[in-house]
């Protein structure tokens, strides 16, 4: 706080903003890179919008297969996010709250899918869950379950790539949360599980929601691991990013239309969720 005050010291007081915080002139050293950053992120989108074949848009939307791919994308990203929540939140809790040997190593391992090129991630998944993989062979011979080239495979590939986003967000939220509430619950006789479900989870709810949104967005855009591990077949494993990639092979306009559909739907869903679940401050 005092640092911020020092920066703006000597400046005349601006008009108070709507949110009630005293308005202060934004330092140019922050504003300039911020605007550059925004332009850098938004200009490619503008490129897509400008180049989009608006005249033929309606008939392109009606192309068979587009809706199938979109539905599959939304389903798989959502299932992948649920899987990530079920496994990732406990893992984040473990990393944030339990002091065990090798915690730093585990924390580093969790970020491996972030660093790994997704295609390599897909190959790695094949080596474990593939027909000749470490676990895949056993799954196949014991239960007759094969994962590559199935919709389940898509969900797994997306979850593999997206889970670190959730874990890092939730762990950050847990570390930032005030532990005194948990300690108070413990002194009042609550066990660790009860504390977790009744105190910790509500406390870091917004952090979990933010992590889930990141995770869902990453899963929705997943390409490399999906096409490598789950393959590409319309209706079962061809998600929108895969459809976009293949459309690019023949028809740039079709690829742009598909990209815009994916963008519009995902932005609409994310904006809707943000207003409802994440306090917009």
């Amino acid at each position: 706080m005092t640092d911020t005050d020092a920066v703006v010291a000597g400046r005349p007081e601006g008009t108070p903003s709507r949110r009630g915080t005293p308005g202060r002139q934004v330092p140019a050293a922050l504003l300039l890179p911020a605007v550059l950053g925004l332009m850098f992120l938004v200009l490619p989108l503008a490129g897509l919008l400008i180049r989009a074949p608006w005249a033929t848009l309606p008939q392109r939307l009606a192309t068979p297969g587009v809706l199938t791919a979109l539905r599959l994308s939304l389903q798989c990203a959502t299932l992948a996010t649920l899987l990530c929540l079920a496994l990732g939140v406990p893992l984040a809790w473990l990393l944030a709250r339990v002091d065990f040997p090798g915690r730093r190593l585990v924390r580093a391992l969790v970020t491996v899918p972030l660093v790994l090129p997704p295609v390599v991630g897909g190959v790695a998944l094949l080596l474990v869950f593939g027909r000749r993989g470490l676990l895949g062979g056993w799954l196949d011979s014991t239960f007759g379950i094969t994962l590559p080239f199935t919709t389940t495979g898509v969900v797994l590939a997306e979850a593999f790539v997206a889970m670190p986003f959730l874990i890092i967000a939730v762990e950050g939220a847990l570390r930032g949360a005030d532990r005194r509430y948990e300690e108070a619950a413990a002194t009042l006789g609550a066990g660790r599980w009860t504390t977790f479900t009744h105190v910790t989870l509500p406390l870091v709810g917004p952090g979990i929601a933010a992590g889930a949104v990141l995770c869902w967005a990453r899963a929705l855009g997943e390409f490399g691991a999906t096409i490598t591990f789950a393959g590409n077949y319309p209706g079962t494993t061809q998600t929108m990013p895969l459809a976009v990639y293949l459309a690019l092979e023949t028809d740039l306009d079709a690829a742009i239309v598909l990209s815009l559909i994916l963008l519009t739907v995902s932005v609409a869903i994310l904006a809707g969720l943000r207003d409802r679940w994440i306090s917009s401050t």
């Binding site: 190959v123 096409i227 590409n232 077949y233």
Partner: peptide
């Protein structure tokens, strides 16, 4: 009916 339609020939081969 293939199980997958790969993005290029090397990808098909690697399968």
């Amino acid at each position: 009916t293939p199980v997958t339609l790969e993005q290029d020939v090397k990808a098909a081969l690697s399968k």
